[in-house]
Amino acid sequence: MSTRILLVDDDADFRAMLCSALELAGYSVEVARNGRAALARQRHSPADILITDIFMPESDGFEAIDGFRRNFPSTKIVAISGGAPVMKANYLDAAGLIGVDAALQKPFEMEELLRVLKSIQ
């Protein structure tokens, strides 16, 4: 049985493309539009790896990470964000602080994401 990934991003185009790319790489992928929807979907059909954007309207990536750490501690988490280290808090660093397994800055090479996914399994 292939590794199941839950992909959370508010950008429909990005979501669709990453979903296709991961499926092409042999993963089984589910998608959600925000953190809350991700938690709901995880309860319904649990994934092994969570890939989540940080900035999303309504319910952001921190909420998803927090919820997963609490309720699904065995799920690996990869945070992705386009936020630049311009402001005092780098959001990827913040994600690291609250405990994700890996963090990537958008845009990233697909090969890099696949390498990260392999390394955390």
Binding site: D11, D13, F14, M17, L18, S20, A21, L24, F55, I80, S81, G82, G83, A84, V86, Q105, K106, P107, F108, E109, M110
Partner: peptide, 18 residues
């Protein structure tokens, strides 16, 4: 600006892979 420019690039990058 970083966020707005990186997001479409991420989508394009993923699409190119597809």
């Amino acid at each position: 600006l970083s966020h707005e420019l990186r997001n479409p690039l991420a989508a394009i990058s993923a699409a190119a892979h597809v």
